[in-house]
């Protein structure tokens, strides 16, 4: 990959590292925060373990408001906040902030939907044995839904990788940014296609790993 005289390889490798960074930090932070909110959405729903109408309604409205916002608009909309928190509006850190927020809300719905499918009988059984809410969440709800949750997080990984390409294009950093700058804008389709290929490989690896994990968890 040469553009003019300078080799693009170092920049390209740097872009890969940036993408992996953006995706993994977002997956970690957004995945965890989303898990917490998703569990809260599920447990505070009427008739459930921690039934609490005000909390449920507040969370539900929040998630429903943020989630449908197109990501590219969301990045620009919260830019002032991003600057406030990360001290910059450009580069991976500035990208990770809005990504993590968006991932949190996306994850919370995925988590909630997987938990709704749980058999309420097992939760009732744990209650009948004298287990408290926190124990039930950690030792019943999450383990019983683990298979579907792993698949949900695999889906999330793919969505975040996709998001990272878009985010990079707007605020800099990662493979999306690289493909735009060195491929599209310099009329070098080979660079674009090659970058695309690498993104596809990353996504595939994540998908295969996720499927394998889910199968192990579900013992199928």
């Amino acid at each position: 990959m040469n553009s003019g005289s300078a080799s693009l390889w170092p920049t390209f490798l740097q872009a890969i590292v940036e993408t992996l960074q953006m995706v993994s930090v977002t997956l970690l932070v957004g995945g965890f925060a989303g898990l917490v909110i998703g569990i809260l959405l599920y447990t505070t729903r009427a008739g459930n373990l921690l039934a609490n109408r005000p909390v449920f309604t507040a969370l539900n409205v929040l998630v429903n408001t943020v989630r449908p916002i197109p990501f590219i608009i969301f990045i620009t909309a919260i830019q002032p906040l991003t600057v406030e928190v990360t001290g910059t509006s450009y580069g991976t850190e500035a990208v990770i902030f809005p990504m993590a927020i968006m991932a949190t809300f996306g994850t919370s719905r995925i988590v909630e939907q997987n938990l709704v499918a749980l058999d309420p009988g097992v939760i009732e059984a744990a209650r009948a044995m004298g287990a408290g809410p926190l124990r039930i969440i950690l030792t019943v709800i999450i383990p019983e839904a683990l298979g579907p949750l792993v698949l949900g997080y695999t889906f999330l990984f793919v969505a975040i990788t996709d998001m990272s390409a878009m985010a990079g294009a707007v605020a800099g950093g990662g493979l999306g940014d690289f493909a735009l700058q060195y491929g599209y804008q310099r009329f070098n389709p080979v660079v674009t296609w090659f970058t695309l290929g690498v993104i596809v490989v990353i996504v595939q690896l994540g998908q295969v790993l996720g499927n394998w994990l889910a199968r192990r968890v579900m013992r199928r």
């Binding site: 097992v122 009732e124 059984a125 044995m129 004298g130 287990a131």
Partner: peptide, 19 residues
């Protein structure tokens, strides 16, 4: 909760933990 520890409960649908 501590009262329930001293009371066994069995269910029509068994309600066992599949995990």
């Amino acid at each position: 909760r501590s009262v329930r520890v001293g009371i066994g409960f069995i269910f029509q649908q068994f309600n066992l933990l599949n995990s």
